[in-house]
Nucleic acid binder design. Sequence first.
DNA 1: ATGACTCATTACATGAGA
Length: 265
Amino acid sequence: MRIASWNINSVRARVDRVLAYLDDHQIDVLALQETKVADSAFPVEPFEAAGYEVARTGFDQYNGVALISRLGLSQVQTKFPGQPAFGKDGKEPRVEARAISAVCGGVTVWSLYVPHGRGLEDPHMSYKLEFLSVLAHDAVGWLTAAPSAQIALVGDFNVAPLDTDVWDPAVFEGKTHTSPAERAALTRLSQSGFSEVTRQHLPDERNYTFWDYQQLRFQRNQGMRIDFAFCSPALSARVAEVRIVRDERKGVGASDHVPVELDIS
DNA sequence: ATGACTCATTACATGAGA
């Protein structure tokens, strides 16, 4: 069984690329983030024509997550318990489309898009930390309830845990993604009993999953490692191989993130 | 030397991303 996660930065702009990727890489379950589309406009048909089922949640052009599976797709949830809401400038807070889960091939897969944070003092940062804190709390609860559960928490976590996960740590001083608070929030998730399997299998430094569109970041290999896969103990034991598909950053019309793939035995 | 990001939107400028 092969599970992949990919921040696609608009599924409509890249549906052909995703279809080609599913076929070329023989992906069984794909978790997408930043689909940037309302549910009513999601391109479900091309995926169904390729033999996949689709579950998605999206309200507008922001955020949006989806699961695409050819191993079944049941028990869909479009938020995790306690998932925090966000409202800017006094607007009514809303639980954004940043989490979706389903049971696919016997594994509960969560596609997660952690809030960006925007700035260390921005209200969006406390939202980000709360999002990760509640997620870690839920994760502990899921394992307590079912220690042998097969659960994968995959997605764009918007945190670079190590200095070697960015091309130049100095660039990020005073900014988001490398701050102690953000790193601590992600550490709490790794202390929940879940293991971050991409680091386990791919420990090499500067193995990035994102390169900004600006300033020739990809050509200069100035990237960030911010996409991860936290697996429950029973699922971690089945992870045979992990790949970061760097080639998907190449060419016209690439997302700024690349897929992360897990081979499950 | 050049020109320097991409996406979506009651679009032609703005918000968001990281």
